[in-house]
Amino acid sequence: MTAIHAAATPAGTAGSPVPLRLGTRASVLARTQSQAVADALTAATGVPVELVLISTEGDRSSATIAQMGSTGVFVTAIRRALTDGEVDLAVHSYKDLPTAPAPGLSLAAVPVREDPRDALVARDGLTLGELPPGSRIGTGAPRRVAQLRALGLGLDIVPIRGNVDTRLGRVRGLAGLEGPGDLDAVVLARAGLSRIGHTDRITETLDPLQVLPAPAQGALAVECRSSDARTRELLGRLEDTPTRACVVAERSTLATLEAGCSAPVAAYAEVAEGEAGPELFLRASVTALDGSDSVRGSLTGPPADAAALGRALAADLLDRGAAALMAAGR
């Protein structure tokens, strides 16, 4: 593991709290969202936070997520640093986490979620429906590949990797970015573009009826050691209860399907006020990688039953052939 300590605040002085050490990946997006959590934590508690940059397997590899074929490639090294006491807390993109809990670690906070939808960045300001057949569209996620193919638009889906600016640089004609410009468009998470100030690049935010988001997309997961009661209490002040309910439902669907982040599985939950109080509306889908077939479903229930709703919806999808679609993708 490679860890580079980058202090965002000075070490504690006499009479001031000792800074908490926050482990994060070194990408611009990871640092930006981790700094946002650090700033929110300091504002809520008065405790300073410094970032500790950690290199992960996913950062060092040039392979696509599907080629790496395992969950946890962006989080294992960070979790090891947390377990070993090198950092006090860690911030992850929630969708990168394996669905199984990590021994000795607690998911202490799920802050308010960004918009979880996918976004298109295309040449000439085009929308998805305006791109002509044969247009080259870049994405590294099998879920997006499968759903884009299922739309039947005749698009040529190209696997890509890299940070946000690298991916944007692949789009032909985008001003102010370096890159080969060999694609007509890319599809990225809107949340990531928003966090680093690139929403002006978006030519269309994709309706979930067209492309359903990944489980927990747009959400952050803040972890600490289970034994660290003080840090758990501090982090609890960042918790957003509706966001946690939504991501619990989505990831419960994913876990019951026994699928990882490289599977063509989508899930999206929303909490809204119903006649009898808050209700959670969960949608999920599994799509064949070639787009030839899919199963979709939805359930509604109390937010307190989020995990059970996810399990029930996954069971319904499995009864209707989801396992065969995922197996074909592998």
Rank of each mutant, 00 (worst) to 15 (best):
P10G: 08
R21V: 14
G23N: 10
R25A: 14
V28N: 08
T32N: 11
G46T: 01
G46N: 03
V49H: 05
V52A: 15
S55G: 12
T56A: 09
G58V: 05
D59Q: 12
Q67A: 15
G69I: 06
S70E: 12
V73K: 04
V75Q: 09
T76K: 11
A77H: 12
A77V: 08
R79A: 15
R80E: 13
L82P: 11
D84C: 10
D84Y: 02
L89W: 03
A90N: 05
A90G: 12
K95L: 14
D96T: 14
P98F: 04
A100S: 14
A100M: 02
A102Q: 14
A102E: 14
L105D: 10
L107Q: 08
A109R: 06
V112A: 15
V112E: 15
D118W: 09
L120N: 02
V121H: 07
T127W: 00
L131V: 11
P132L: 05
P132F: 05
P132V: 01
G134P: 02
R136H: 10
R136D: 02
T139H: 05
A141F: 11
P142M: 08
V145L: 12
A146F: 01
A150P: 00
G152N: 02
G154F: 07
D156S: 12
P159L: 13
I160T: 14
I160N: 07
R161Q: 04
V164H: 09
T166C: 00
L168I: 12
V171S: 10
V171H: 07
L177A: 15
E178W: 00
G179D: 05
G179T: 05
D182L: 05
D182H: 03
V186R: 03
V186A: 08
A189D: 10
R190K: 13
A191D: 00
R195M: 07
I196T: 13
T199K: 01
I202F: 04
E204D: 04
D207L: 02
D207Q: 01
Q210N: 07
L212S: 09
P215S: 06
R225H: 07
S226C: 08
S227G: 12
R230K: 05
R230T: 09
L234Y: 01
L234H: 04
G236L: 10
D240G: 11
D240Q: 03
A245M: 04
C246M: 15
V247Q: 08
V247E: 06
A249M: 08
T253K: 01
A255G: 14
L257N: 01
C261Q: 13
A263M: 10
A263I: 05
P264A: 04
P264W: 00
P264G: 06
V265K: 05
A266C: 06
A267F: 04
A267Y: 05
V271P: 03
G274L: 10
G277A: 09
L280W: 00
F281C: 12
D293Y: 01
D293I: 04
V295F: 00
L299I: 13
T300Q: 11
A306R: 01
G310R: 00
G310T: 08
G310F: 00
R311S: 15
A312E: 14
A314L: 09
D319T: 10
A323V: 08
M326N: 05
A327V: 11
A327F: 02
G329H: 12
R330K: 09
R330P: 00
